[in-house]
Computed example of a mutant assay.
Amino acid sequence: MHQNALSMDVRLRIRHLDPGCFALVMATGIVSIDVGQHGMTALARALFGLNLLAYAALLLMSALRLRWFPRELLADFVSPGRGAGFLTLAAATCVLGSQCLLVVRLPRLADGLLLAGAVSWAALVYLFLAAAITARIKPGFTRSINGGWLVAVVATQALAVLLVLRTASASAFDPVGLFTALCLYLLGAALYLLIITLVVYRLVFFPLRARDFTPPYWINMGALAITALAGSLLVRHIPPADSLTPLLPFVKGFTLFFWATATWWIPLLVILEGWRYLWRRVPLRYEADDWDIVFPVGMYTVATYELAQALQLDFLQVIPDVGVYVSLAVWLFFAVAGLRRLFRHRTQA
């Protein structure tokens, strides 16, 4: 009887699996890279092992959902308010691939994840946009657009980051790979400027209930941070005598522009969180979307670390030196909250 109840609970979880569930992998991956940059090698590798298991488990659950509940999955995918969450698969794949190069030395696995990330990015970005454009019945503007749409930017830049890292770690210089990474970086920047215009328009000119200010709005900052990371890595790894070298001043200025804008977003997001929980007293409950807060916080720290090295701005190093502990604390907070909720559901079942 207990086994049947447990089996039903598992099927129910798979049926209602959140489209953005791979944000857990993105968050754990970037925190692993973050602590690894600060010499916490054992912890970084432990988080990599945990992330590998989480990625495999979520991949299996997603495959089972596609097999058992294709209608629900398709309904989520064509929903403008939820469909963008599926792009976390592409972003998480690339973040895990970056871990394979920065945290552990698994270049062959990184190559496989690079290929999987590129294929999933291309398929999901175009299919999601095509579905949104061609839908015959569309919900209102406020029900369609949210910060989650910016996962398209995160996935694009995560692919650019992994491509730069893989090109830099290869024994032979790959100009095509570096050029492709630069094009992805510029494409991600263009997508951000396009999407954030809609997001800010929604926030400023339409009523926003406290419950509607959900964690995906933190991607407003996270998408900028990963763009700054991609740009910083390009600055560091474009050879001095390469044909792309004349573009370096442009890349440097653009990268600093995105980092500065990411920095500007942080106080506003914190104020809005205070408005949501302290002023409007929305109950504090764990949701899968909460990992959309962890990833931007960790990514901002990692991006600042790389930016300080790329532009030789040593005074910025204090930010990642403090930020690494902030991102780790935020990750631990939501990890404990998630485990408590899982344990509570198991005991009730």
Results as ranks from 00 to 15, higher is better:
155 A>F: 05
155 A>P: 06
158 A>R: 08
158 A>D: 13
159 L>Q: 03
159 L>K: 07
159 L>C: 09
160 A>P: 13
166 R>H: 14
167 T>P: 02
168 A>Q: 11
168 A>K: 08
169 S>V: 08
171 S>R: 13
173 F>M: 10
175 P>C: 04
175 P>I: 01
176 V>M: 00
195 I>E: 11
199 V>S: 08
200 V>F: 15
200 V>H: 11
202 R>E: 06
203 L>D: 03
204 V>E: 09
208 L>Q: 15
209 R>S: 05
210 A>V: 07
217 Y>L: 02
218 W>H: 09
220 N>I: 12
221 M>E: 11
225 A>F: 02
227 T>A: 08
230 A>K: 04
237 H>C: 07
241 A>Y: 11
242 D>C: 09
244 L>Q: 11
246 P>W: 03
249 P>G: 06
250 F>I: 15
253 G>V: 08
262 A>I: 00
265 W>Q: 11
266 I>D: 02
266 I>P: 00
267 P>M: 06
268 L>C: 10
269 L>I: 01
269 L>Q: 01
273 E>M: 11
276 R>C: 04
280 R>V: 00
280 R>F: 01
283 P>M: 09
285 R>W: 02
286 Y>D: 10
287 E>Y: 08
287 E>N: 07
287 E>D: 14
291 W>D: 02
291 W>T: 03
293 I>K: 08
294 V>F: 05
294 V>Y: 08
295 F>P: 02
